[in-house]
Amino acid sequence: MSTLRIAVQKSGRLHDESMELLKDIGISIDNGIDQLKASARNFPVEVFYLRNGDIPQYLKDGVVDAAIIGENVLIEKGNGINIAEKLGFSSCRVCVAVPKTMNYTSISDLEGKRIATSYPHTVQSFLDKNGINANLHIINGSVEIAPNIGLADAIVDIVSSGSTLFKNNLKEVEMILKSEAVLAVSPILDAEKQAILDTIQFRMQSVLRGRQSKYILLNAPNDRIQDIINVLPGMKSPTVLPLAQEGWSSVHSVISKNEFWNVIDELKANGAQGILVCPIEKMVL
């Protein structure tokens, strides 16, 4: 039987969240310190721990079959690699930042400037799109230090909270793109490995739906049930069960965590009482 080879980042936040997702979909990995490859105990999967920037080439060459990788890295280096699933974690953005002392008013202020970055293709495409000529300095590592040592007038780098920019007296002035972790697939994948990947993707979708949803239970007066049902999106339709107290029913449904408080306010306004909200581990459709 074939074994699917999945690459994940060797260390860091993306690594930790990737391994957590694999665990949540039922794949048990035994890996030691500094181990570069590990096999799953209960699933036909091998996990390769690689440098993020190397993964796109391994996907292209078929050295690995799939990867959990930052979308920004694929945009920079992964031309021709398909994204099977967006995973909703490790969110960041690729941004232009300049010294706080710079009087930046528009993108035209980058004309003729020196820009330090680890994403030259992404930056050049952005500059070309906006008709800006600038000089790129390719740096692998601490890009944010470049303006402070006189190497560049601006930088382009990934930003999460913005604290690193703040510490280096930089300010964010343009956002080039938003990024998150994705499941990427090698263009060289046979039918047997595709079947394994389909199972993994199905499990991931179930976990991700659960993370984005909440299970809600409430008590409703029977004469207000239809009004309350109209507020609840549900999966197909809410479950309604009679309570021991005459004239009342229990309503069960699923709501998006992003709409949580708005939905709760509407439910209360429509007579709902005893509202309970619970996390969902997985949601299989």
Results as ranks from 00 to 15, higher is better:
T122R: 09
E172I: 07
Q205R: 13
K193Q: 07
S91W: 01
P187A: 10
D54C: 00
V143R: 05
R41W: 03
V47L: 04
L59G: 11
D157A: 14
N52Y: 06
E144K: 11
E85D: 02
L4E: 07
A154H: 06
R41P: 00
V284F: 08
K171N: 06
Q212K: 14
F89L: 06
N31H: 15
N103V: 05
P147I: 09
I255A: 06
M235T: 13
N262E: 10
L22S: 10
I196Q: 01
G141Y: 01
T117H: 03
Y104I: 00
A40Y: 03
K10D: 08
G271I: 03
L127R: 04
G131F: 12
V284M: 11
V64T: 04
S118P: 00
Y104R: 01
E85A: 11
R211N: 11
S249Y: 02
E76C: 06
P56L: 10
N222M: 12
I81W: 12
G247I: 03
L232T: 02
L22A: 09
N169L: 10
I29S: 08
S18D: 11
K214W: 10
V63P: 00
T164Q: 06
V284R: 14
V251A: 09
I81R: 11
F202I: 08
R5I: 15
I55Q: 00
L218G: 10
I158V: 14
S2Q: 12
E266M: 10
G53V: 09
L183M: 09
